[in-house]
Design a protein around this nucleic acid. Structure first.
Length: 924
DNA sequence: TGAATCACG
DNA sequence: GACGTACGTGATTCAA
């Protein structure tokens, strides 16, 4: 069956003009509306091949501003301002664009485009055709008929059928004219009835059927303003009814059959696109791929005509959005454009607790706005500034942020995703400029927005503290006045967008697309989920430990002071050093550069091991005191304070860009350094518990860095040992010392780690308590037995010096700008780090991939209740229903063991050890 | 704010 | 011949 598409070109031009940034082409002609129009036609042309796509198509335009309606009512469209100056030259270009697509362009003097559309629609329907009107004009909604005529709003990619019409007007399509007549239209200057808006009009028509019936019933209505207005303005209502009526019998300038689509010839289209420099569309034309085949997630900014890159930030040009309709406006441009930068402002730094204060959006440089929703302080009764209701913002923003065809751009989006996630919004797809910067420039500089703006845009951002103040006088962002808040917040979105335009093309150009797409890009969403979920911590267990530690600390303190003969601050390394080395005369005190004796563990253990030292007794107690103080202050006390009272759980924050090698880091609190190595410390892990009926599951990669070293350096002996499942440290001991016992295995283990960290004979000598010469002999022997290792070290160093960076198996770069430093100490430090980075970094890449795949893999296996809670570099911690343990273990092991594949094929297997229990401690 | 110390992988 | 002794993190405390 023929399917006719009627494109409301005139309506589209105005909307596109107002919703798109003011672009110009290389000839300096304004083309914003033309660009929007062209991409819209392109998308329509894509539907050509679809089953329900068009067989016939025409673009309908207004010819002149005069129509029969001016005869009916001389004020019709009287107050309409002339079109904007830079839109006028675009009208003829729209006709060019239409011709470039070889589409018929229909206009007729004396008729509006709406009348022509209505007439063509009726004619087509009479022949039994399908009709789609490409427009979102409310007047045209009268024409909708279920099953035969619908509308397509290309700005929102939304089909409008009678259900949508009913939702908008409260009446079926054939009554829309009645409603429009009563409510009037200020833009077209259709008078309607004063005091009657969409709601009242809909109610009246629902009750009475049509305008005449409403007017007739007016006399019988209860007395009031409405009744008076209906009686007084009855004539105006009748005129309005005629004005909104569409003419359906206009003689058709072209016959229906002539509108048949015969394909779109390349040449004229190409010429048109080239004239305007619409590169992204040209590219699609060139490869013969249709627009639908192109990735919608990453709009080609390079293809946007943009002769004026990065003007300085115009803080006073940012809009404060306090009117819901203005918000709609911004959202619609964003949806049409296909990308938008976003930033949220909140009451605090902890995303899992902070309240939303406002959201800023940016569409192009200097085209940014701020939408306040939570300003006005915490006092419930205080007067608040005019602003949009938070729930309204959520309703209006959610469709945009979840629209799969609109790319959301943020800087450290993980934060915004948590804040928005708590309001029921998920953000996808997205690009994160902090992650992009990290993947490009790790090791060169930090990745905070202010630093990147200074580095890449030569722009110094408004400092947060300039807006809120510092120290005790600091106020929350919700207390900042809207003007200052807009300048600050909109600038953040503006800068984010500008950074994105700089960084995005660099990814491909500099070979970092792989690691960005395959490893890091998905992480903000995954990690946001983990942070939001948190892990349950039993405050009672911690409180008991705190009390216990307290007692022991007090007792030790007394004993230590007793031995010294006076009181001093044990926690002060300065005082402790003086007590030990000056007052008590212990020998061998070493002063650091600040003139303070070193009193670290190594030093104290050296004293404790010396049977003749007078300080033995005290030093042993100090070591105990230190351990308990550390555990109490850093863990048992601090952790209790970190429990979120709303959730009863602890929500750490992971930094995706904190560790140069690609690892995550954890803060507030750091859950990646919870004690495990000593029995006392280990008890703290028992406080990390599962909810009733659930268990904690811990899965960790066994020896992942050594396995990766075996693969990367290609060491056959190590590879084979891992394949056989041998104890790798015993095997190393056998190779190095010819015998395996506790001592040699321990030494071999130390050497194995030393290799990964970039070894020095002195470092190893210190660890193993041997002379540097003996240490050197062991290193030499190691290189001899595992010849791949020194080749790896030499190659890595050479590459790091030649290129300035190292890479992981997934292409992650870590830069080492100091690797050629003249200071040998500095240089040697960089060299060791460079040796370690590819191994530590590849391990980080692999577990990150496992994390990304874990959620979907568990869901596929029907294990939706299994939650991933923590990552500790080579370990993932889960919480799950007891009954799911067996099934989940299988999935988790499979995902982790195969996480490198298929991008990287390892020559060693990855081993994963899994344990479960009521607490994290018990799961190990 | 930096140094020292120590918790983790 | 000096350098000054393992990679990557974060939190706490003291003292300036």
């Amino acid at each position: 069956m023929p399917h006719l598409y009627l494109v409301d070109g005139s309506g589209y031009i105005f909307r596109a003009y107002h919703r798109l940034p003011p672009l110009t082409n290389k000839h300096g002609e304004p083309v914003g509306a033309v660009y929007g129009y062209t991409t819209m036609l392109w998308r329509l042309a894509d539907d050509l091949h679809k089953a329900d796509g068009p067989t016939h198509m025409a673009v309908v335009l207004d010819k002149s501003s005069h129509s029969f309606r001016n005869e009916l009512y001389d004020q019709y469209k009287a107050h309409r301002p002339p079109p904007p100056e830079d839109l006028v030259p675009q009208f003829p270009m729209i006709r060019d664009a239409t011709r470039a697509f070889s589409l018929p362009c229909i206009d007729e003097a004396g008729w509006e485009a709406d009348d022509l559309i209505a007439s063509y629609a009726k004619a087509a329907l009479a022949q039994g055709w399908q009709v789609t009107i490409v427009s979102s004009d409310k007047d045209l909604m009268q024409l909708v008929e279920d099953g035969s005529l619908d509308m397509l709003d290309t700005m929102n990619n939304r089909r409008i059928g009678s259900a949508e019409v009913f939702e908008k007007f409260g009446v079926p399509p054939n009554k829309v004219g009645e409603v429009l007549a009563l409510m009037g239209d200020s833009v077209d200057n259709v008078p309607g009835v004063p005091g009657v808006g969409p709601k009242t009009a809909a109610k009246l028509i629902q009750e009475h059927g049509d305008v005449e019936a409403v007017l007739a019933a007016a006399e019988t209505m209860k007395k009031g303003k409405l009744r008076d207005n209906l009686i007084e303005h009855a004539e105006s209502a009748r005129i309005s009814r005629k004005l909104v009526e569409l003419a359906c019998d206009v003689p058709l300038p072209d016959a229906l059959e002539d509108l048949e689509l015969k394909g779109i010839p390349d040449a004229p289209l190409r010429a048109f696109l080239e004239h305007h420099g619409f590169k992204s569309l040209l590219a699609k034309l060139g490869t013969g791929a249709s627009a639908a085949d192109a990735p919608v997630e990453t709009p080609d900014v390079a293809g946007m005509p943009d002769p004026d890159p990065d003007p300085p930030c115009d803080h006073d040009g940012y809009e404060t959005v306090t009117d819901p309709e203005r918000l709609d406006h911004w959202v619609q441009i964003a949806r049409h454009q296909g990308f938008v930068a976003i930033d949220t402002e909140t009451t605090g730094l902890d995303a899992t607790r902070a309240e939303l204060v406002g959201v800023s959006l940016a569409l192009a440089p200097n085209l940014a706005c701020y939408v306040p929703v939570g300003h006005g302080g915490t006092d419930m009764f205080a007067e608040k500034p005019v602003q949009i209701d938070r729930d309204v913002l959520v309703d209006k923003l959610k469709p945009l942020l979840e629209d799969p065809s609109v790319l959301k751009i943020g800087h450290n989006l993980k934060y915004d995703m948590i804040v928005l996630g708590r309001l029921g919004i998920s953000v996808a797809p997205y690009d994160d400029t902090i992650v992009m910067s990290f993947d490009l420039d790790a090791g060169l500089h930090g990745h905070g927005m202010d630093e990147l703006a200074a580095t890449h845009l030569s722009h110094s951002c408004i400092a947060y503290k300039d807006v809120t103040g510092t120290g005790k006088k600091a106020i929350g962002f919700h207390e900042v006045d809207l003007k200052a808040a807009t300048r600050y917040a909109a600038e953040d979105a503006d800068v984010t967008l500008r950074l994105w335009r700089r960084l995005k093309p660099r990814l491909a150009f500099e070979g970092s697309t792989r690691v960005y797409e395959m490893v890091d890009r998905p992480l903000p969403a995954v990690v946001a989920g983990m942070e939001m979920h948190g892990i349950k911590v039993d405050a009672d267990i911690l409180a008991r430990l705190s009390a216990d530690f307290s007692q022991q600390i007090a007792a030790l303190e007394e004993e230590i002071h007793g031995i010294a003969g006076f009181k001093f601050t044990i926690g002060s390394p300065k005082q402790l050093g003086e007590v030990l080395f000056d007052k008590m005369g212990i020998k061998g005190g070493r002063k650091g550069k600040s003139g303070v004796y070193s009193t670290d563990v190594n030093e104290l253990e050296r004293i404790a091991a010396d049977k003749d030292s007078p300080g033995r007794e005290m030093v042993v107690k100090v070591l105990d005191w230190r351990q308990l103080s550390k555990l109490k202050s850093t863990y048992t006390d601090a952790l209790q304070a970190q429990i979120n009272p709303a959730t009863g759980r602890v929500h750490t924050s992971y930094s995706l860009t904190g560790a140069q090698t690609g690892r995550l880091s954890s803060t507030d609190p750091n859950l990646q350094n919870i004690p495990i190595r000593t029995e006392v410390g280990r008890q703290i892990r028992d406080a990390f518990v599962a909810e009733p009926g659930n268990v904690i599951l811990s899965a960790d990669y066994s020896q992942i860095e050594l396995r990766l070293a075996a693969h990367i350096a290609d060491v056959p002996q190590l590879r084979e040992a891992f394949e056989r499942g041998d104890d790798i440290h015993s095997m190393t001991a056998q190779e190095l010392f010819g015998t395996v016992d506790r001592d040699t295995r321990g030494r071999a283990k130390t050497i194995n780690f030393a290799i990964l960290y970039g070894i020095s004979r002195w470092g190893l000598a210190g660890r193993l308590d041997v002379t540097p010469d003996e240490a050197q002999a062991m290193i030499s022997r190691y290189f001899e037995r595992f010849p791949g290792i020194n080749r790896y070290i030499a190659d890595t160093l050479q590459e790091a010096k030649a290129r300035g960076y190292t890479t992981t198996l997934f292409g992650r770069k870590t830069h080492f700008p100091r690797i050629k430093a003249p200071n040998p100490n500095e240089r040697a430090g960089s060299e060791r780090a460079a040796i370690n980075a590819p191994i530590q970094g590849t391990s980080a890449d692999i577990i990150k991939r496992a994390m990304t795949r874990m959620g979907p893999a568990l869901a596929d296996a029907g294990l939706g209740h299994v939650r991933m809670l923590l990552q500790v570099h080579d370990e993932l911690v889960f919480e799950l229903p007891e009954g799911d343990v067996a099934a989940a273990t299988k999935v988790i092991r499979r995902v982790m063991e195969t996480a490198a594949e298929p991008a990287v094929r390892l020559s060693v297997p990855l081993g994963v050890e899994i344990g479960t229990g009521p607490s994290w401690g018990a799961a190990h």
